[in-house]
C-alpha cells in the first residue's frame, strides 16, 4: 500500500451524480449503457490514474455492456469507484473482478429497480397527478414531477455515496433481507394500487337490455347486462379485460397492437350498440 491514497471528495461525487442523470443519453442496442457508465466514471478515473496507459485501460474497462434501471445505477457507480480506488492504490484487483462485480450487481439491482420505479413509484405518482389533472388542476403535473424526481434524485445521490463508502461490503448488503423486503413492500403497494385503478378508472358499459318489467305500482324497471354484472361485483369486466391483456402480452403481443385491437372493439361495439 502506497500512502498516497487519492480519495474522491464531495465535488467529485457530485460530478458523478450529475453525470448519472444522463445515464441513458447514448442508449444503444449494442451495449445499452456502456458509454453512459464510462461517462459516470470519468471523474474517478481522472482522479485515481495519472498516466495515459492506466487511464486508457480504465476507460476501456468501463465501455463494456451495462444495463440496469437508470434510477438505481448509483450503488454500482459508487462501488466501482471504490474498487478503482483500491486498484490504483496497488491492491491486486484485475479487470475481470471489476467487470464481474458490475455484471453481478446490475441484474439484482434491476430486479429491485424495475418493480420499485416503473411498477410502483411512477404509476402511483402519475396516477395521483392524473387524478388532479383530469379536473384541470395544475397541482397534478406538479405533484407528479416533484414527488417522482425527489425520490429518484435521492436514490441516485445516496446510491452513489453509499456504494462508494460501503465498497465491497455492498455485495453482502445486496444479499441481505433488506432489499427483498424493500422490493416486496414496493410490489405490494404497486399491486394494491393497480387493483384500485383497474376498478376505479376503467370504464366499460354494456347497456344491453335483458328484460323490462313493470311492477304493480307502475314503475318500469330495466335490467341490463351491466346492471347484473355490477350486482355481482363492480369492475368485473375491467378485471377480466386486464387479465386477458396480461395473457396476450405474455404471448408476446405488442402493446401498441393490443391498443389498436381494443380501439377496433370499441368502434365495433359502439356500432352494434353493445358498448356505451
Amino acid at each position: 500500500m502506497s500512502g498516497a491514497v487519492k480519495k474522491l471528495n464531495k465535488k467529485d461525487l457530485f460530478n458523478m451524480f450529475v453525470r448519472s442523470n444522463f445515464q441513458q443519453a447514448s442508449f444503444n442496442y449494442e451495449r445499452i449503457h456502456a458509454l453512459g457508465f464510462c461517462f459516470d466514471m470519468i471523474p474517478a478515473i481522472k482522479k485515481f490514474y495519472k498516466t495515459d496507459e492506466e487511464r486508457r485501460l480504465a476507460l476501456k474497462r468501463h465501455l463494456a455492456f451495462f444495463n440496469t434501471t437508470p434510477a438505481v445505477c448509483g450503488p454500482v457507480v459508487g462501488v466501482t469507484a471504490a474498487m478503482e480506488e483500491a486498484r490504483s492504490d496497488g491492491e491486486p484487483i484485475d479487470d475481470g473482478s471489476i467487470n464481474s462485480l458490475k455484471v453481478g450487481l446490475m441484474g439484482p439491482l434491476a430486479g429491485v429497480g424495475d418493480p420499485l420505479i416503473w411498477g410502483t413509484l411512477r404509476p402511483i405518482t402519475a396516477a395521483l397527478g392524473a387524478s388532479f389533472a383530469l379536473n384541470g388542476n395544475i397541482l397534478g403535473p406538479l405533484l407528479f414531477f416533484i414527488s417522482f424526481n425527489a425520490v429518484r434524485l435521492a436514490l441516485k445521490w445516496y446510491g452513489i455515496t453509499y456504494g462508494y463508502q460501503a465498497g465491497m461490503g455492498i455485495v453482502k448488503d445486496m444479499a441481505s433481507n433488506t432489499l427483498t423486503k424493500l422490493t416486496e413492500g414496493a410490489s405490494i403497494l404497486g399491486l394494491f394500487v393497480m387493483g384500485v385503478l383497474v376498478t376505479k378508472w376503467t370504464k366499460i358499459n354494456v347497456p344491453v337490455v335483458i328484460s323490462q318489467t313493470t311492477n304493480q305500482a307502475g314503475v318500469k324497471s330495466t335490467m341490463t347486462v351491466q346492471g347484473i354484472l355490477d350486482q355481482l361485483c363492480p369492475g368485473l369486466l375491467a378485471l377480466g379485460l386486464t387479465f386477458l391483456m396480461m395473457y396476450l402480452l405474455k404471448k408476446k403481443a405488442s402493446p401498441i397492437l393490443l391498443i389498436f385491437a381494443l380501439f377496433g372493439v370499441g368502434i365495433l361495439g359502439y356500432w352494434l350498440g353493445i358498448l356505451k
Partner: peptide, 24 residues
Amino acid sequence: GGLNVAGGFIVAVGYAMVLNMMGA
C-alpha cells in the same frame, strides 16, 4: 364514438404491462 368508448378501457393494456412486470 367508438374511440370515445374504447378510451375508457384501453387503459387495461397499461395495467397489464405493469402487472406482468411485477411478476410476483
